[in-house]
C-alpha cells in the first residue's frame, strides 16, 4: 500500500494526521459551508454586515421565501422532466448499441465505435447553431422534449462506450451456448445479456442524471422562461434579479445542488465505478 499506513507511523505523526484530516476537509469545503451558512442567515444579518459571525437566528424562512417569491419549484420540476427521460432514453439506446458493438464482428464495427467515442469530446459550440436551428424548425424550441432529445443523442456516445466495454467483459460462452441452442438474437439480448447489465445501468443512471441536472449550456441555448427552463438556467436568471440578496441566492444554490448530491450519496459505489472507468487496467 502507498503511502505507508499511518498506523505504522510514530504517535506524533498519527496525531498530526488525525488533526490534519478534519482541518483539510473544512478548508476544502469552505465555499460550500459559507454558502450553506448564508442560506440560513436572516436578511437583517446581511444588512448589518454580519457576514461571517454566528447568525443571529437560523432563518429557515429563506427557503420558504424562495419558494414563494420565485418559480424555483417549477424550475426543479422542469429539470426533472428533462433529466429522467434523458436517463431512460440514453441508457436504452446505448444498451442496444453497446450490445451490437460488443457481440458482433462486422467490418465497420470499430469505426462506428470510435465515432461514438470521438463524438463525446467535441466542444458543444460546434453543435450549437445547427442544433438550435433544427430544434426551432421542428417546433421543439423551448420544450422539455426538444432539450431531452438532444441530451439523449449526446449522452448516447459516452454510454455506448461504457456499455460496450462492460458487455465485452461478460463471459462470451453464455452467448455462444445460446446460439448453439438456436436462441434468436433479440432473445439473447433480452434474456441473457440484459439481466447481467444491472451494475452498468445503475452506474450510468446516476452519472447521466448528474450531468443532465447540472447542464447549463444547452438549457440556455434551447429553452427560455420559467415554463421550461431547468434549475441551472433558472438559478442564473434569479441571480440576475436578486442582486445582493445573498441569503436567497445561497438558498437557491443549495436547493439546486441537493438532488445530485443525494443521488451521489445514495449510489456512491455505482457513481465512482462509472467515473473511474478506464482508470485501472
Amino acid at each position: 500500500m502507498f503511502p505507508r499506513p499511518i498506523q505504522q507511523a510514530p504517535a506524533p505523526a498519527r496525531w498530526l494526521y488525525a488533526v490534519a484530516l478534519p482541518v483539510a476537509l473544512l478548508l476544502w469545503l469552505f465555499p460550500l459551508l459559507g454558502v450553506a451558512l448564508t442560506s440560513l442567515r436572516p436578511a437583517s444579518d446581511l444588512a448589518q454586515g454580519n457576514y461571517f459571525g454566528m447568525p443571529s437566528a437560523i432563518a429557515w424562512s429563506n427557503y420558504v421565501e424562495i419558494f414563494r417569491q420565485s418559480p424555483i419549484a417549477r424550475y426543479m420540476l422542469n429539470s426533472l422532466w428533462v433529466t429522467v427521460p434523458t436517463v431512460i432514453g440514453s441508457i436504452a439506446l446505448s444498451l442496444m448499441a453497446g450490445f451490437a458493438l460488443a457481440v458482433y464482428r462486422f467490418p465497420s464495427n470499430l469505426i462506428v465505435f470510435f465515432l461514438f467515442v470521438a463524438g463525446n469530446f467535441v466542444p458543444f459550440q460546434i453543435l450549437m447553431v445547427p442544433v438550435r436551428d433544427m430544434t426551432l424548425q421542428l417546433g421543439m424550441y423551448d420544450t422539455w422534449y426538444g432539450l431531452a432529445l438532444f441530451h439523449i443523442a449526446f449522452q448516447t456516445g459516452f454510454c455506448t462506450l461504457f456499455m460496450r466495454n462492460f458487455i465485452r467483459a461478460l463471459p462470451f460462452e453464455l452467448i455462444e451456448a445460446a446460439r448453439v441452442e438456436g436462441v434468436a438474437e433479440w432473445r439473447i439480448f433480452w434474456f441473457i445479456v440484459l439481466p447481467l447489465m444491472r451494475p452498468a445501468i445503475a452506474a450510468l443512471s446516476v452519472l447521466v442524471f448528474t450531468f443532465i441536472w447540472n447542464d447549463f449550456f444547452w438549457a440556455t441555448v434551447l429553452t427560455q422562461g420559467p415554463d421550461t427552463q431547468p434549475i441551472t438556467a433558472g438559478l442564473s436568471a434569479l441571480n440576475g434579479q436578486w442582486i445582493a440578496q445573498w441569503h436567497l441566492v445561497s438558498a437557491g444554490s443549495i436547493l439546486a445542488a441537493l438532488p445530485p448530491v443525494l443521488m451521489f450519496f445514495l449510489m456512491q459505489r455505482h457513481f465512482i465505478a462509472g467515473l473511474t472507468l478506464g482508470a485501472v487496467k
Binding site: L93, M96, G119, V129, F150, A153, T156, T160
Partner: peptide, 16 residues
Amino acid sequence: FLAPALVMFTIYVLWP
C-alpha cells in the same frame, strides 16, 4: 440494434 443510437447520433452530433 445500432440503428436508433446511430440515427440520433448522426442527427444531433455528426451532421451538426
